[in-house]
Design a protein around this nucleic acid. Sequence first.
DNA 1: CGACTGACGCCGA
DNA 2: CTCGGCGCCAGTC
Length: 115
Amino acid sequence: MATKPHPHERIWRTVLAVPEGYVASYGQIADLAGLPGRARMVGKALGFAPDDLQVPWYRIVRSDGRIAFPAGSEYAERQKQQLLEEGVVVLKNRIKMNEFGWKPDLAELLMKLEF
DNA sequence: CGACTGACGCCGA
DNA sequence: CTCGGCGCCAGTC
């Protein structure tokens, strides 16, 4: 049944639910992970994410669709590259949320991540 | 305990 | 569309 893992773990598992070819915002992940108001914590958690978990950190962007890292920075470039590789269009360091924003199906979501 | 710091979010200028 | 300011939350000093 529903267990109650450490916040970081819940965040990782939620991010793992974001499908290839789509992106989600930090705040959206925080909400889905049951941590409303903690968008900033999502960024931190992604930084701590164990490599073996294969967390798709690059699918997380700001609510307005912009990549959180400074445009042109090493991290921003790598994130853009990862996204482009799976078909997500990135222009001017930003993604069109109306087109690539992930709108999770509630039923499937509950099934997929029982905390 | 207060000040400062972010992979944030929202709103007004 | 870009900035600036402010709220927010968990850490760190």
